[in-house]
Simulated scan of single mutants.
Amino acid sequence: MSETTGKTKVAIIGSGNIGTDLMIKVMRTSEHLEMGAMVGIDPNSDGLARAKRFGFATTAEGVDGLMALEGFDDIEIIFDATSAKAHVHNAGKLTPLGKRLIDLTPAAIGPYVVPAVNLDDHLDAPNVNMVTCGGQATIPIVNAVSRVVPVAYAEIVASISSKSAGPGTRANIDEFTETTSAAIVEVGGAERGKAIIILNPAEPPLIMRDTVFCLVDAPDESMHDEIRASIEKMVGDVAAYVPGYRLKQQVQINAIPADQPVHTLTDGRRPSHQVSAFLEVEGAAHYLPAYAGNLDIMTSAGLQVAERIAARKAATA
């Protein structure tokens, strides 16, 4: 913690789109955090150049360069915005040094955290995983449904602009589907989960869109009202830290036709209804374009976790 400001110092590994947007958010919106260092591997990256102009410590030597910085000991929280494979390497070096890691890759070394669902459950974990952009957008909806009625199967489709998918995102496509699917079950509360991501090359670039399908037993109309109310409340909870997060249209709850083979998704059981929610995520445009809501929701979620960790520490200091 800084002796002059009383704020918790953070470092960001990854000077690409996500890392740079996160740096801007820390500077403009954070109450309890301050930048300590920006770390990359490309000395010509825009993120490192901006960090230098702002007067922050920088290195283009990756995690080893970070550990060699003069102010490294003062840094308490480190965001990793690289790739799943790189995070495994970075965590291996930083965790033994007592640094708190917030993983914005799909590496899933630590517990999954979706702030609107389980923010307070893992604040003591040395390494927390922010799942994926699709997970941050859709898992709250699955959880909202599962709070009302058991979810036998949940499927999410995340459609993002191809322009908003940088090298790290593209390198993590396989991990995206695996990590998101697992978190739909572990955090969302579904019995089974599946995740699909679409990189849309349309021009002009399209805003992030997400579709959530849940198979449930909900024959009672009053239960439909409870499900819709639970989803609408959850959308408000997420929008509190991602203002561009919203329902695109009213939640649909439809009876499943007798000839629809949903039993192949639910271990032989036949749920009675399908719940469908359609979302869009508009970015805050702090650094990234507004269409890149997929990246904005990741940086906003990661910042929420770090803020809560730092606020709790400040309250007990």
Rank of each mutant, 00 (worst) to 15 (best):
A171E: 03
L206E: 11
A218D: 14
E155C: 11
D210F: 12
T266M: 11
G168M: 08
S164V: 04
V187R: 04
S300G: 11
E186H: 04
C214A: 03
P205L: 00
V216K: 01
A240F: 09
D217Y: 06
K194E: 13
E178S: 10
D267G: 12
S272T: 14
A239V: 06
G244M: 11
T177D: 04
T264C: 14
S164H: 02
E186N: 13
R209W: 15
E186C: 06
A158Q: 13
S276K: 04
I173N: 01
L295I: 14
I184K: 00
F213W: 05
L247H: 10
A277W: 03
D174Q: 10
Y245M: 14
G293W: 13
I173W: 05
M208T: 11
V281I: 15
A195E: 09
A285H: 00
T211E: 13
T266R: 02
V187C: 07
S222H: 11
I156F: 07
F278A: 06
V242C: 15
F213I: 04
I173H: 05
A182R: 10
V157H: 09
P243F: 06
Y241T: 06
D225E: 12
S161Y: 00
G268D: 00
I197P: 06
G283V: 01
L215R: 15
A190T: 03
G236I: 05
V157A: 07
P257F: 13
D267W: 08
T264F: 14
K194I: 10
E282Q: 12
S161D: 00
P204Y: 03
T180K: 07
P205T: 00
A292C: 10
I173R: 02
L295G: 15
N172Y: 13
P205E: 00
E280L: 00
V275W: 02
E191G: 11
E155I: 05
A182N: 08
G236R: 12
L295T: 15
E175A: 09
A229M: 08
C214E: 02
N172G: 15
L295E: 12
A239W: 06
P201T: 04
V235R: 09
G168H: 04
A239L: 02
T179R: 06
R269E: 03
N172H: 08
